[in-house]
Design a binder for these strands. Structure first.
Length: 307
DNA sequence: TTGTATAGCTCCT
DNA sequence: GCTATACAA
């Protein structure tokens, strides 16, 4: 199974949020045992657990930053530093409980922290990949290629990327939820019969994703209804424009298309050919859509797509 | 039905 | 980071 390494690093970092914020080492020392930083200890524990359960883990790390996500990442970084500042104040006030929570909210997983876990993977011969860009896309690729049976994560983006089998909320006892997209048509609240993967993705983007903020007044239910009416992007935008209650930017159709293509053509590592490849190889509509953009740098510094 | 605000949670002992 | 809940529009 592919494991979203960032999730475990983040949860592990929670256990030493204060030390990380203050730059205090979290590694224990003992003559007779090797200790890793506390956030790595947590990851190692989780890895051992799933190995014991008979699962071979493949850790996947986030890689380069995507230009599409810059706004989201800037906002997150700002909120994290604000939380750290607030935490410092709370420590001075003696409110240690709330301070810990603020420090926890201010957790940043840095590259050196990631590397600590990568070193452990090398020592313990645990397979891992560093995604060219987002781990979500890389894990989806591993699933689509049949290299992993499922994905362990907390991030619902995996479903938008088109991955069928995702395990959420996996706890220490090995309990969790499996979302299997093959059961989507059995959903009772909404009828997903004859709903394609692309329709599902377009619904997700309309409802708001990391690559495009949602329109005020449009949540998942409305997004579902719109996509049910038409799957054509210009037509979707026309439907939204028809209703004056939805505030929509001039560039929305372009922005929507860029978000859609960022999911479809996300650059991933092709482990068979040791090269980079788009997550989906296809001709037809998506290619026509991407050919409308002279600047394809939103797919990353070296955009890949099929002609 | 949706947005916003609010509060609670991840760790470990 | 995610999730649940209440309440207003």
């Amino acid at each position: 199974m592919a494991v979203d390494a960032s999730c475990w690093l983040h949860t592990g970092a929670y256990s030493c949020a204060y030390e990380l914020a203050k730059g205090i080492p979290t590694r224990q020392y003992c003559k007779f045992a090797i200790y890793w930083p506390r956030y790595v200890e947590y990851c190692v524990k989780r890895i051992s657990q799933i190995i014991q359960a008979g699962v071979t883990p493949v850790l996947v790390f986030d890689g380069g930053r995507l230009p599409m996500k810059q706004n989201v990442e800037k906002a997150r970084a700002k909120s994290r530093s604000k939380n750290k500042e607030e935490a410092e104040k709370l420590v001075l006030e003696g409110n240690h409980d709330l301070a810990f929570k603020k420090f926890a909210e201010g957790i940043t997983i840095t590259a050196p922290m990631v590397y600590e876990l990568i070193k452990v993977c090398k020592e313990k011969k645990i397979e891992f990949f560093v995604a060219p860009y987002e781990a979500d896309a890389q894990m989806t690729y591993l699933y689509k290629e049949g290299y992993v049976a499922a994905i362990i994560t907390e991030d619902s983006d995996l479903l938008a990327f088109g991955c069928d089998r995702v395990l959420f909320k996996l706890d220490n006892e090995g309990y969790g939820y499996e979302i299997n997209m093959k059961n989507l048509e059995n959903a009772t609240e909404l009828n997903f019969a004859n709903f394609s993967k692309d329709m599902f993705l377009k619904m997700c983007i309309l409802g708001g994703c990391d690559y495009l903020p949602s329109i005020k007044g449009i949540g998942l239910k409305t997004a579902y209804k719109i996509v049910k009416e038409t799957t054509d992007i210009p037509e979707i935008v026309r439907i939204i424009k028809r209703d004056p209650k939805y505030p929509i930017t001039q560039t929305y159709q372009e922005d929507f298309t860029r978000a859609f293509l960022t999911f479809k053509f996300h650059t991933v590592y092709d482990f068979n050919n040791k090269t980079l490849t788009p997550l989906n190889k296809m001709q037809g509509t998506p290619y026509i859509e991407i050919s409308n953009f002279t600047d394809k740098s939103f797919l990353g510094p070296y955009p890949l797509y099929y002609q």
